[in-house]
Nucleic acid binder design. Structure first.
Lengths: 361, 361
DNA sequence: CTGTTAGCGCGTTCAT
DNA sequence: ATGAACGCGCTAACAG
């Protein structure tokens, strides 16, 4: 059907291997033969067959990235970081979306192993070791993104969820809030737990009694998204501030608060983890603990490529990226509160933020 | 490295071909040998090598989907439709994002042709025939998504941009608006042109003079996104309604209007093409010409699979999907205006819309 | 500088 | 019911 290296060779009057040398710039080829071969390639519209090459090399130069929610800008930003580094090193990327569904995740894993991808970047649907073990059993390198997997010996790149939550809640406390609710994700993923842990530590450090703690776990799907926010408002005393453990939860909460007729930030402060995409610059714009999503993708890919390059005997590494506390409008007063937080200067990565804001921490 | 079919065969004491038969359920295998082989497969953690299989069959059972903006929920929804149909037929999907960049698009095209994907679903960065010709030159089937390619003989699945825009603007006219600005996309893509054409036809049918026409073309990137909305407001007379040619443009316009202190819909009506993701349910929620994105992905994939199945001699087909006019808050009064539009009953596909809304058309 | 041989892992064809 | 041989397209290793 499509022409092979032999067709080109025949047309150019040379041996197949010579064509191969022209294509790959390997070995010696005289200028004349080279141009004869190139002419034949052009004439036949020859396109090299990567499958055969991969079979030969036992290397595909393909990486797989498995994320949990492709509609979340956090993950698309991570994906960009991964792809840019991968491409720069001559790798292509297969992006897969699991929707936090373990069955889907495992199906992808199998398919990708069969395709013999050279390495995996995996955001596990749950914080368990099984998928990592499945991959490692095939001697394929893998880097875990975003979530801790305590039982597995594996490279991890994640954000400082505990610390970020702690700083964000500490900021709310410094503004004077005493009744702060936490709206978190599913308790099966480490980030949801870590963010609650940071929240708790902040409360404890402020000497607040446990009664002031209001934690709500939940799923990420749309109907349940603002359900917890609604429940939170019915608590007594009503929380004066909400801490959302990710950007989508915050959007759901904002909606719930609007429906309840509560104005943000005048009546309720609202802060969250993850940045909100800037094309979504709706007032009141969120005060956030912004993850360095692009950088997360970059660093993870670098780790993976290192494992791919050399014989693999290094100990597993864990990279914990800092988060940037970005104060905007949703938390209330923009003036510096009496707080232990110092001023920072960095901009969140590559963003174009026209909202009044400042970075702290 | 990883075990092959021969390793399994050796361990089970059979010939490689027997293992192959077990894996593929082809030919006859006695129950005992079968279980011996299965035991060996499990023990060795054998994973079949798709590369070798594809090389043999000259078929990869992989489709490629090339979109222009992975951050736009429209395209992620299309992707879901594609993936669901593809998976149901045993195909996997490679998703590529060009960011409307032709160079990136062409690079992906080459890479995917080398990988010998079985077929392409392509949303071209520009409405020109070159990329389609490149693919067709390799005898690989391709279906074009979302945009018209006048010069190419190729299957197309797209929405009725002209008609949708016409109905949306007609609706605004029926509400009494006489000064309506159009904020469109790049004039190099057919959808941007078609939506302006529908807008123009609506104005013409209302007998409005050309002076009432205010058309702004633009790019999709963030900084320019609300630029045009700002320009539009400075026109005299100031438009009382804005028609945005896609969802992101509308979000940019909303921002610009907020900054200018103009309330939507009280002072300016705002309608747009494409639905806005529902997790982004910010008031005033948009009146839209919602595309059937999921269905677009489905239908396109079905066309592609048909081409893949049989010997290909059918004439190119064009499927034009209707758009659903969904009236919500951003256009002003929810009461039926004196208009030629009839009531409809269908829900936009699979959505969970709690906003007051109704469908017309 | 160029060509021959051989094999990557798998499955069809034809035997046994 | 099972197996041997061959080839898919490409390239490393070794001639010439």
């Amino acid at each position: 059907m499509s022409p092979t290296i032999r067709d080109v060779a025949r047309k150019a009057g040379v041996a197949p291997i010579t064509v191969s040398r022209v294509i790959n710039n390997s070995g010696y080829v005289s200028p004349e033969t080279r141009s004869r071969v190139e002419a034949a390639i052009a004439e036949l519209h020859y396109v090299p067959n990567t499958l055969a090459r991969s079979l030969r090399f036992k290397k595909t130069r393909v990486l797989a990235l498995i994320v949990t929610d492709i509609t979340n800008p956090f993950w698309t930003t991570v994906a960009r970081g991964v792809e840019d580094v991968a491409n720069a090193h001559g790798f292509s990327l297969i992006l897969c979306n699991t929707d936090e569904d373990e069955a889907k995740q495992d199906a992808y894993l199998q398919a990708l192993l069969q395709k013999r991808v050279d390495g995996f970047l995996l955001a596990p649907a749950r914080s368990v070791a099984d998928p990592v073990r499945t991959i490692q059993a095939q001697n394929v390198p893998v880097v875990v993104l975003d979530r801790r997997i305590p039982e597995a010996a594996v490279d991890v790149v994640r954000s400082d969820s505990e610390g970020g939550a702690h700083r964000l809640v500490t900021y709310l406390l410094a503004l004077g809030h005493r009744h702060i609710a936490a709206l978190s994700g599913p308790p099966t993923v480490s980030t949801a737990l870590d963010r609650v842990a940071g929240y708790r530590r902040a409360l404890a450090e402020a000497g607040l009694p446990p009664a002031a703690e209001m934690v709500f776990y939940g799923r990420y799907d749309i109907p349940s998204r603002y359900h917890n926010a609604q429940r939170a408002q019915k608590r007594t005393p009503r929380p004066t501030a909400l801490f959302a453990a990710n950007n989508f939860i915050a959007l759901g909460a904002l909606r719930a608060l609007e429906e309840a007729g509560l104005r943000v930030p005048d009546e309720v402060a609202l802060v969250c983890f993850d940045d909100i995409p800037l094309w979504l610059q709706i007032t009141p714009f969120f005060t956030t603990a912004a993850q360095r999503a692009y950088q997360m993708g970059q660093r993870a890919t670098e780790l993976l490529l290192e494992r791919l390059a050399g014989p693999d005997m290094r100990a597993p590494r864990e990279i914990v990226l800092p988060v940037d506390i970005v104060v905007r409008q949703s938390s209330g007063s923009l003036r510096t509160p009496a707080s232990p937080l110092a001023d920072g200067a960095r901009q969140p990565e590559g963003q174009w933020d026209q909202h009044p804001h400042r970075l702290i921490g």
